[in-house]
Design a protein around this nucleic acid. Structure first.
Length: 898
RNA sequence: GGGCGCUUAGCUCAGCGGUAGAGCGCCUGUCUUACACACAGGAUGUCGGCGGUUCGAACCCGUCAGCGCCCA
């Protein structure tokens, strides 16, 4: 016997292990079934399961379980990525607590230590995914630093290099002075910062007393200024173009150039140009062939190495000693010192408060510093073209579609991708440096040596590039590297391209676009057909979750409190297309109630001895109730399937919820009770049969979103072997004979009972009071129908008996209209006539408004002439119905008036 | 500044040319032999404003306002 409530904690682990042990999650590459492939967005190996994972993984698992039940050979590929910066930071912090430093211990020892850390703590997220019920094919788990995936990375790097699509270049890069590495454009986020706009006066060379004022937000970079730019058409500066200005403090003479980059509307109209420390200035520097001295080190400390020779003393303008004193100072300290010294010299015209966007490193959190360095770049522009075409042609489709705009906007204006990182943890760049500046890119050291030997004619010493690749470089290969590429494996042949990629919009550029580029280039085909983009999880008020706001929800804690099924079903129910998921505990609690409802419905069947019955033939049912239920089941299954097909998880949840609660529980089980309590016989056998059949359908229908409770019930009832629901067949439609008749009959009963209840409630008739029901003006068919359902009407409508009324109505009845008949409840002494009159009048009023609206419509000749015929006809029918009902209500009111 | 999206019941949202809906919440009643994580009943909307197209607009078009996100 089932307990009164479902206890998730008691079954979840057992069932998950049961599935896993039975190999139920495993793909079957040797079989003939059509594949269904989802590549997990590999979580960061340092990570732990957060609510965003719960969202994306619930969606992926729901799709995977559904397709698996449909008979597809489902592969949900698990794994994690090595998260270069994040992991290195974690281990360095650990070392710091032991008083150690990676530089002291050296590269080899440090990497050993990272692997050791990974072995000990790196797997927590995969354990947590199991708690959610995620049916990943664990034996196929991959890690981006695995041997196989590393081979793929080297293969891709070398190939792209040979094709000229990866190259080394010296240009400005986004440099993180805290983490001491280059990062890509995408890893930079703008943050609004309240700063100042300093207006600095630079003396014009050879024109005593003449100054040109430049406006800047970064005065400390002035040491590296090599020009001043003004707009070519700006009359204020026309006479100065071609002249030179003296750079204050330093004393270097710098040209005043005309360049459209300078915006006459902004600041002072003149802008200082520091090519080595600003992306725009770099471009101006290139156009005007300016020198590009760097004045900051990797740590963002002032360095004078490249400007030492320029330093001069000019009274009132330049101060070499002061500048020398800046060496080694932090960029922000230097800013203060420089501004102070300029003020002393009277070279600061004004300081305006200024809020502007400052680029920050997304990992380190400090302002990034544009820095002139040699780095490896990937020619994203070229690689992007086939990916763009594949989306344009529909070979890949975004869901919701609108994300294609975002995708195109970025892809069509894509910049070279800086792929090198000055880290130790990651895929080391397969490039070796030899004498005379020669670089040999090869799959391994031996191959590099061979290339060097071929070039020089003898063996030479080679040094390997110390840098590693961007983690996203290896993630970009995930859809094929996990399947064994560059080997030609059966898995690669079967599971590439993937069916759908599920991820958040924040990752479209980082990962989705890059997988497309690499997939198109190396596999010659798209990496996946569909891209389902979901929103963010927010709190119930729509606020983004953050530690500082204290509104973070822990999915594991929610699972502990409500069960994984409730969490998953809530997520499905709230996941509309293009919408964020606003999650609150109350929502999860509400959907736990749904799980309890299902549990208790099953418990009721169990109490009535209803069990799986293979002899039951759904196509052969005779009773209207069984036919009605099977028909409703068909519709629920069709709605749910269509919803999943369209990635409408909200519609899927709603269709299942409504069918189970409002269809199966509220009506079917209530109608079944009199039969189940009645004598044994064909009818009872059929109702029990259809009940077990439909419970089986419900368990299968809900399994993708609520795997545990459904499997538990499936197993306890014995629908199959333990842990077999996960691979049971997804339900389909069955032919129901006489479905329309059954629907008409049950609709009539439902509406009769509904009206009966409404009248009783509005008349404040206590449930303990029962009464006979009189039907006046009913056709013989209606009376026969009422007779067939008398037991249900008695039970659900608190009616003692039902009789046809031929003559006059007795005094003291509550009345309502049902179809062609008027129903009457003789409740003399109980009903309040004034209340009854008011109720009937209100009813009549509503109908009257309705009828008037329709009359007005039909009275409009334009409507009758121009609207579609069926619309006009429909309105005529509605008017007739309303008018007939008004007439019966008038009769009822007249009787009351006596 | 450019782009995208949103604005419908107290809340979260569906509906996207022909009768304004759901869930939750709220109010009332009920321990009716599966379920009080329940059952039954009820109330609630100038569908953001304005203008247009149409026989007919929450839905299509224009415009304004507010909110959110992305890019500069």
């Amino acid at each position: 016997m089932l307990d009164k409530n479902f206890d998730p904690a008691a079954v979840e682990q057992r069932l998950y292990e049961g599935w896993e042990k039975a190999g139920a999650f495993g793909a079957r590459p040797e079989g003939n079934a059509a594949p269904f492939t989802i590549m997990i967005p590999p979580p960061n190996v340092t990570g732990s399961l957060h609510i965003g994972h719960a969202l994306t993984m619930t969606i992926q698992d729901t799709l995977t379980r559904w397709r698996r039940m449909q008979g597809r050979d489902a592969l949900w590929q698990p794994g994690t990525d090595h998260a270069g910066i994040a992991t290195q930071m974690v281990v360095e912090r650990l070392l710091a607590s032991e008083g150690k430093d990676r530089r002291q211990m050296g590269r080899e020892a440090f990497l050993d230590r990272v692997w050791q850390w990974k072995a000990e703590s790196g797997g927590s997220i995969t354990r947590q995914l199991r708690r959610l019920g995620a049916s990943l094919d664990w034996p196929r788990e991959r890690f981006t630093m695995d041997d196989g995936l590393s081979t793929a990375v080297r293969e891709v790097f070398v190939t792209l290099h040979d094709q000229g699509l990866i190259y080394r270049d010296r240009r400005l890069v986004n440099w993180d002075p805290k983490l001491l590495t280059a990062i890509s454009d995408l890893e930079v986020e703008s943050r609004e910062v309240k700063g100042s706009l300093w207006h600095l006066r630079y003396p014009v060379e050879g024109k005593e007393g003449r100054f040109i004022t430049v406006a800047t937000t970064r005065p400390e970079t002035m040491l590296g200024d090599t020009a001043i730019a003004v707009h070519p058409e700006d009359p204020r500066f026309a006479d100065l173009v071609g002249k030179r200005a003296i750079l204050p403090l330093v004393g270097r003479a710098i040209p005043i150039v005309a360049d459209e980059y300078s915006d006459p509307e902004k600041g002072s109209g003149a802008v200082k140009i520091t090519p080595a420390h600003d992306f725009n200035d770099f471009e101006v520097g290139r156009r005007h062939a300016l020198a590009m001295p760097s004045v900051l080190t990797a740590d963002a400390l002032v360095t004078l190495e490249e400007i030492e020779a320029d330093l001069r003393d000019i009274p009132g303008v330049a101060d070499a000693d002061f500048v020398r004193g800046l060496a080694g100072q932090d960029r922000f300290a230097a800013r203060k010192a420089i501004v102070a010294r300029l003020e002393e010299l009277g070279l600061v015209e004004k300081i305006d408060p200024h809020t502007h966007a400052v680029p920050h490193g997304d990992r380190g959190g400090v302002p990034i510093e544009p820095r002139l360095t040699w780095q490896w770049y990937c020619d994203a522009k070229t690689l992007a073209q086939p990916a763009i075409k594949a989306v344009e042609s529909g070979a890949m489709t975004f869901h919701p579609r609108q994300w294609e705009n975002t995708f195109f906007a970025w892809m069509r204006d894509i910049q070279p991708w800086c792929v090198s990182r000055q880290l130790w943890w990651g895929h080391r760049i397969p490039a070796w440096y030899g004498p005379e500046g020669m670089i040999f890119v090869a799959r391994d050291e031996a191959a590099a040596q061979a290339k060097a030997r071929a070039h020089f004619g003898h063996d030479v010493a080679l040094d390997r590039d110390p840098d590693v690749l961007d983690t996203w470089f290896s993630s970009a290969l995930w859809p094929f590297s996990t399947l064994g590429w560059p080997e030609k494996t059966p898995e690669l042949a079967k599971y590439y391209p993937g069916s759908v990629l599920v991820t958040g919009f924040d990752i479209i550029f980082f990962w989705v676009a890059r997988m497309m580029m690499m997939g198109m280039h190396f596999m010659g085909d798209v990496p996946f057909r569909d891209i389902y983009i979901h929103g963010l999880v927010r709190d119930e008020r729509g606020q983004k979750m953050s530690k500082s706001k204290g509104n973070v929800m822990d999915p594991l804690e929610l699972i502990d409190a409500y069960g994984a099924d409730a969490v998953r079903f809530t997520i499905c129910a709230l996941t509309g297309p293009g919408r964020d998921v606003k999650l609150g505990r109350q929502r999860v609690e509400g959907y736990r109630a749904f799980a309890t409802k299902l549990w208790n419905a099953a418990r009721f069947l169990e109490m009535n001895g209803i069990a799986p019955d293979v002899r039951f033939d759904a196509a052969a049912v005779k009773t209207p109730l069984a036919r009605w239920l099977l028909d409703a089941t068909n519709r629920a299954v069709a709605d749910a399937s269509l919803a999943l097909e369209a990635y409408r998880f909200d519609d899927y949840a709603q269709a299942s919820y409504r069918f189970v609660w409002n269809g199966f529980c509220d009506w079917f089980l209530e109608f079944a009770k009199p039969v189940l309590n009645g004598p044994d016989g064909a009818e009872k056998t059929e109702i029990k049969g259809v009940a077990q059949h439909v419970l089986g359908v419900i368990l299968r229908l809900l399994h993708p979103s609520m795997p545990y409770i459904t499997e538990e019930l499936w197993d306890r009832f014995g629908y199959g072997e333990p842990c077999s629901l996960i691979r049971a067949e997804w339900p389909g439609a069955i032919t129901v004979e006489g479905a329309a008749d059954a629907r008409a009959e049950l609709d009539w009963v439902v509406s009769l009972i509904g009206d009966l209840r409404t009248v009783r409630a509005e008349m404040n008739v206590p449930p303990s009071v029962t009464a006979p029901l009189l039907l006046q003006g009913a056709t013989p068919e209606t009376l026969a129908r009422a007779g067939r359902w008398i037991d249900a009407i008695r039970r659900l409508g608190r009616v003692t008996e039902l009789t046809a009324l031929a003559g006059e109505a007795p005094a003291g009845v509550a009345q309502f209209v049902v179809g062609e008949a008027t129903a009457m409840l003789p409740l003399a002494g109980i009903i309040d006539f004034a209340a009854e009159r008011a109720r009937l009048s209100k009813e009549r009023g509503k109908l009257d408004v309705e009828a008037q609206k329709i009359e007005a419509k039909l009275g409009n000749p334009d409507f009758v002439a121009r609207a579609k015929e069926e619309v006009v006809e429909e309105n005529r029918e509605r008017l007739a119905t309303a008018q007939a009902e008004i007439a019966r209500l008038d009769a009822a009111l007249a009787r009351l008036g006596k």
